[in-house]
Design a protein around this nucleic acid. Structure first.
Length: 760
RNA sequence: GGGGGAGUGUCGGAAUUGGCAGACGAGCAUGAUUUAGGAUCAUGUGCCGCAAGGCGUGCGGGUUCGAGUCCCGCCUUCCCCACCA
């Protein structure tokens, strides 16, 4: 509902607002429900959507339902397939081997959520990693551009998370010589960010999955290494859960030569080295890397100091020294500061042809294959002769068969569906098989905002003109949990579609606001999207507006909070008070004795409130906007009781109240607006503006301190000059009690705020 | 281990960014009204103290005329990433 307030605010500010709603409907939830309850995921999803629509409507958001998008309909997912084909053509979608969670007992792939403590959630069998052919999107191609956050205004926190996730690091790829073994490859390539420590290498470690492990392992170590790799394969998931796992490894029996100093060092295998990062090989420098240090300690490998701490340091290291220092034991680089050594050694390595500077990213390509039913079928056909053949665009969509069987056989339902599986090759006509994997649901959500701009467009995924008109999205809302998934993927999509010539902008969402989550017991209540906890009961009791306002009054919108229904009554009281206040007949004030001061006070407050509320709404500070409106109504009630303002003044105050409340409480304000005799909707009005002159106070409270301690408060004209203010402060009786018999050192004056008298 | 938040009455939370701590709401208390009320209205409500006054924003220091806000050192807690070479 917070996003709805924003949409309504923008509309009342005269903007043309597109505020759509849709359902991200594919995914594991529906599929699991289908298996557990024997309901088809389509039915389950549609039922849920109907419920959610009802709940959403009950709070009264201003959605344009004509643009509704439902991702599990062929009308939508055919365009997932279409985009997939565009990506494929551009080389942005490719097929490759990747490890998946595999349950050897169920003979099935498991999603990460289905792996509990390293065990299959269904049969408690230890899950292993297994390489399978899968589809990827080449998001790493955009790693550098994704690091550029200059074209968007997002919370710093999200930017930081994305930056860390992409994890760019600059370093040097350097080769270690293994030519003595006469293999195809004469060297092992490693990546390091600390080339300044190259002279301290005492061993080299390969990831267990590295292809060289097999060829470099000597006969006498073969069995041990094989056993080690086998257990590493089983451990991958379990070990991740242990925070401080002791490093393990095993030697291959082979050696390599550090070309920089000609030293021959052993080659080991250890699972603390990741096959997927850098080159999958690490040069071990125990003196200057904590992980290498621990590893060396455990296996009795030598520790060689090559960077001396500025203070000379100690001979015996108890931990790795990872800071900068002076090069020692580094040949001709001795004596250089390590920062300089870093450059000089890199140059040297490049000149000698032993390696070159390179950049590495933590970010991996996006694995989009899911061995599941409830998702978008990947539009590829495998032909024995032609290989992987894309489904021709005219044959899209590849429709998900409705009659797939949902038996817990351990196989993907699509792979068992003969009608779906068997097709002729689009190129040669020979009997072929369809890809049975479906796409990650994050594909659906990576471009839906483009579809909203032209939900019925049939030429492409979206109408480029409509997209150009509405996108980038001016204001996007979403939780932090999307930082490195959805939000990053959407950015990648827009850049990729731009490079395909389909878009002419670089970023999907100009401004991003993280809304918080309302927690009720243990369940989540989203503040803007579907609610898990049904608000219906509360809406019935206190009305949609009180419900909406309460959700926003609970705390800052980006913070979320714990739902507590006792506070809801307070909001109910307030909306009732407003209702009642707005129904007062201004005619009753016709014969009133007008008090000019009171009238001015009310008018001033009208303008101050407009200023405060407009400002807060703009900044999503809904809680304080509502607080200001409450103060305003309280003040109005007091004025009415005194009955000392004109009916015109009163009417203006009432009208302002309704207009300012309209984005927050759309229903009662609309009704009250109509009852006040207006024929047009309140939501078509423009937000009132404030006049700084009228909003200005003519009398202010000046705080008077003595040595920084509050001693008095005095009422003075707002226009008071510095000297007069100081005199008034010094003359205060309460102040004199504390200044009596002391010397005034100085007097500090903060205009409009305070006077602080410093005495000794 | 790394990164980022947060810590304020009984509770949710305010505080124009260095200037009246506790706005607004909840709860509670007292009173009014009512046959009745999860209704309405009024008043009060950080702590100690009869009072003058003192003490108060996780703890300890510091800067400043003045610190919830800035700096240093701790404690607690939440989130994200976690062997990234």
């Amino acid at each position: 509902s917070g996003a709805d307030v924003h949409a309504r605010l923008k509309r009342m500010q005269g903007f043309n607002v597109l505020h759509p709603m849709g359902f991200d409907a594919f995914g594991l939830n529906a599929e699991n429900a289908a298996i557990e309850r024997g309901i088809h995921p389509y039915t389950w999803t549609m039922d849920n959507m109907a419920k959610m629509r009802g709940q959403l409507r009950s709070i009264g958001p201003m959605y344009d339902w004509d643009r509704e998008v439902v991702t599990c309909t062929p009308d939508y997912y055919r365009w997932n397939q279409w985009i997939f084909l565009q990506f494929y053509r551009k080389g942005l979608a490719y097929r490759g081997f990747a490890p998946v969670n595999w349950c050897p007992s169920c003979k099935t792939v498991l999603a990460n959520e289905q792996v509990v403590d390293g065990l299959c959630e269904r049969c408690d069998t230890p899950v292993i990693q297994r390489d399978m052919n899968q589809w990827f999107f080449r998001i790493t191609e955009y790693a550098d551009e994704l690091l550029d956050q200059s074209k968007m205004d997002w919370p710093e926190k999200i930017n930081t998370m994305q930056t860390n996730w992409i994890g760019r690091s600059e370093g040097v790829e350097i080769e270690f010589d293994i030519s003595e073994y006469g293999l195809d490859q004469a060297s092992v390539k490693t990546f390091t960010t600390r080339i300044d420590t190259i002279f301290g290498v005492t061993f080299v470690v390969l990831a267990p999955e590295h292809p060289l492990v097999d060829v470099l392992t000597t006969e006498e170590h073969r069995d041990e290494v094989a056993a080690y790799i086998e257990q590493a394969r089983h451990q991958t998931d379990i070990e991740r859960l242990s925070t401080e796992k002791e490093k393990t490894g095993i030697t291959t029996g082979s050696f390599c030569i550090n070309q920089v100093n000609g030293e021959r060092v052993p080659i080991l295998v250890a699972d603390y080295v990741l096959a997927t990062y850098g080159t999958g090989v690490v040069m071990g420098v125990p003196a200057h890397d904590q992980r290498d240090f621990e590893f060396a300690q455990k296996y009795g490998l030598p520790v060689k100091v090559v960077i001396a701490p500025p203070d000379g340091g100690d001979d015996t290291l108890s931990e790795a020294y990872t800071d900068e220092g002076v090069q020692v034991n580094s040949g001709k680089f001795d004596g250089l500061p390590s920062s300089e050594g870093m450059e000089k050694i890199a140059n040297h390595v490049e000149e000698q042809g032993w390696g070159q500077r390179s950049v590495n990213y933590r970010l991996r390509d996006w694995l989009v294959s899911r061995q599941r039913y409830w998702g978008t079928p990947i539009p590829i056909i495998y032909c024995d002769d032609c290989g992987a053949v894309p489904v021709p665009e005219k044959d899209l969509p590849v429709v998900l068969p409705e009659d797939a069987e949902f038996l817990p056989t351990g196989d993907s339902p699509l792979a068992l569906h003969q009608g779906f599986l068997n097709v002729p090759c689009p190129d040669c006509g020979k009997p072929s098989k369809r890809e049975t994997d479906t796409m990650d649901t994050f594909v659906d959500s990576s471009w839906y905002f483009l579809r909203y701009t032209s939900p019925n467009y049939s030429e492409a995924a979206f109408d480029p003109e409509a997209a150009a008109k509405w996108v980038p999205v001016d204001q996007y809302t979403g939780g932090v949990e999307h930082a490195v998934m959805h939000l990053l993927y959407a950015r990648f999509f827009v850049k990729a579609l731009r490079d395909l010539g389909l878009l002419s902008f670089d970023e999907p969402f100009k401004r991003l606001f993280n809304q918080g989550t309302i927690i009720s017991g243990h369940e989540k209540m989203s503040k803007s999207r579907g609610n898990v906890v049904a608000p219906d009961d509360f809406v019935k009791r206190v009305g949609a507006d009180a419900m909406r306002c309460y959700l926003m009054f609970l705390g800052p919108w980006d913070q979320g909070g714990e739902w507590n229904d006792s506070g809801l009554n307070g909001m109910f009281r307030w909306t009732n008070r407003v209702w009642e206040l707005a129904h007062r007949d201004p005619a009753a004030l016709k014969g009133a004795t007008i008090d000019e001061g009171s009238a001015r006070d009310l008018t001033r407050l009208v303008h101050q409130t407009i200023r405060k509320v407009s400002d807060d709404l703009e900044k999503f500070k809904y809680n304080t906007a509502i607080a200001a409106l409450m103060e305003y109504t309280n003040s109005m009630a007091r004025t009415w009781k005194r009955a000392d303002v004109s009916s015109e003044t009163w009417e203006q105050a009432t009208e302002t109240l309704l207009l300012l409340m309209a984005p927050l409480a759309p229903h009662i304000t609309e009704e009250l607006w109509e009852r006040a005799g207006h024929s047009d909707s309140i939501h078509n009005q423009t937000l009132p503006e404030w006049d700084p002159e009228i909003a200005a106070e003519d009398e202010i409270t000046l705080v008077v301190q003595v040595n920084g301690r509050l001693r008095d408060r005095i009422q003075v004209p707002a226009s008071i000059e510095e000297d007069a203010a100081k005199q008034a402060a010094i003359g205060s009786e309460k102040v004199m009690v504390h200044t009596e018999g002391k010397t005034t050192v100085k007097v500090i004056y903060v205009p409009g705020r305070l006077v602080n008298i410093v005495v000794r």
